[in-house]
Structures are given as structure tokens and as C-alpha cells.
Amino acid sequence: MTSITTTNTIDVVSYCRVSSHGQGESGLGLEAQREYIARAAQQNGWNIVDAFVDVVSGKLAIEDRPEGKKALAACKKLKAQLVVAKLDRLSRSVHHIARLMEQTEFKVATMPQAKTFELHLFAALAQQEREFIANRTKEALAALKIRADAGDIQSVEKIFRRSEALDKGRTKANRAKATEAVQLRVNTWQESVRDPIDLCIRKGGRTLQQVADCLNSKGITTSRGGQWSSMQVSRVMKNLALHFPAKDAAV
């Protein structure tokens, strides 16, 4: 049975934020946020007197968001506290959180008993973790680029998918150029293994696995630097329009 705190009931203003009309960057969708807040209000005796929703990036301070500004004004007018589902719905910046603490009291549904100092500490730890993640991401992308420049097809495709996700602001012409550049790298690597595959066939390779074994024995690696399999051979041969002699069946 749900327990409800019977101490002084406080009025709260619900505030939710998503980064887009979809789920939002943290995976915490609008409905989930509302449920978190509703449950916390029920369990802690909070009285929700108003509610606001922003569809905006968390990089903006809450006072610079359309609905966030209204929510703060409502808190002041109704003498209520602001409540959010999670701390990152307010901001991902310790500076923004600290500044907000000077303007109004607020509560976090997932940490309903947390005090101001604790919330500030959580915000600092979260920001530090994001910085660690950002650094690891940069290092991973740098390594990915090195492998892509060396002809690793999977790395090239991963970079392309990442750039495609960030491509919304680019022009159609620039997107076309990016696609052409990726395809050129893919084609360049595939052409580099055309002769070795052809030679393996000419030397008696009559199945995909025999060609794979031949390439592996010569120390020729796949685009990711690994051993060839029959499936990989099949894919590359198809792209390069290479075939076994008509009387032989490649299986």
C-alpha cells in the first residue's frame, strides 16, 4: 500500500522537458516524467497547482525557455515549489542549477527527500560524468577516423551514420558530397582486394570458403583487420562483380 507523508502539504508546479516531440535525449519521455511527478506528489503529499512542458534543449537555462520562464513565474505567484522528474530536466549544467537555487525552491521526483546541498552535489557529479563521456567519445571517434582512413569499411560507415544523424543542418549538396566521399572510400578499399580475390580464384579457389582460406593464408585481412569468412567474400565478390568459372558452383 502506498504511504503518503502527512506532514505539511506543499504546493508544487510541475515542469517537464523533452528535447523533441519524440522521446527526448535522455530516454525519459513526457509521459514517464508526468508519472514520476504524479507518484512523488501522491507519496509525499504535494499538491500540483500548475503544470508546464517545454520542448527544448537542456543547454538553455530554465529561465531562458518559453515554458520554463512561465513555470518560475507561477511558482513565485502561487508561492509554490518547482518539481521535475529528474535533475537533468532542469539542466545539465551545475552553473544553471546553482543559479536556479537562488531563485526558487525545487524538488526532484526521483529524489524527493534530497536537500539543496545534495541536489547541487548530484548535479556536479552528473556534469563530471558527462565530461568523461564526452572525452571518451572524442577518443573513440579519433580512433574510428584512423581506422576509416586506413580503409576499414565498417569504420567509414559508422562515421557516415554519425554524420548523417548530425546532417539535418547541412544542405542537400553537402550531404551528397559526404555520401560520395564515403562511397569513394568504400570503393577504394574494395578495389584493393580485387586482385588478391581474383588470384585466389585463378589458383583453384572454387568455393567462397576456399577463397576466404586463400586470403587468410596470404595474410590479407578484411576491412576491419580480421580473418575472412565465406560471407564476407561473397559480399565483396558481388560488389566487385567477380565470379567463379561458370561450370563451378561457389558454395
Rank of each mutant, 00 (worst) to 15 (best):
K145F: 02
K145D: 05
K145I: 00
K145C: 07
K145W: 02
K145G: 06
I146F: 01
I146S: 03
I146Y: 01
I146N: 07
I146T: 12
I146Q: 05
R147D: 05
R147I: 00
A148L: 04
A148K: 11
A148F: 01
D149E: 11
D149Y: 12
D149T: 09
A150K: 09
A150Y: 11
G151S: 08
G151T: 10
G151E: 03
G151K: 11
G151D: 03
G151Q: 06
D152S: 03
D152G: 01
D152E: 04
I153Q: 02
I153Y: 02
I153P: 11
Q154L: 02
Q154D: 04
S155H: 01
S155M: 07
S155F: 02
S155C: 13
V156S: 00
E157F: 01
K158V: 00
K158A: 04
K158I: 00
K158M: 02
I159L: 09
I159N: 04
I159P: 00
I159E: 03
I159K: 00
F160D: 15
F160I: 09
F160L: 10
F160E: 15
F160K: 09
R161Y: 05
R161H: 10
R161K: 14
R162Q: 14
R162I: 05
R162A: 12
R162S: 14
E164Q: 13
A165N: 13
A165E: 12
L166G: 11
L166S: 14
L166F: 08
L166D: 12
D167G: 07
K168Y: 10
K168A: 09
K168T: 08
K168L: 07
G169Y: 07
G169M: 14
G169A: 10
K172M: 07
K172A: 06
K172P: 08
A173K: 11
A173H: 09
N174A: 08
N174L: 05
N174F: 06
N174K: 04
R175D: 04
R175S: 07
R175P: 03
R175A: 07
K177E: 14
K177P: 06
A178I: 05
T179G: 15
E180L: 06
E180N: 14
A181Y: 04
V182W: 08
V182Q: 14
V182R: 07
Q183M: 12
Q183K: 14
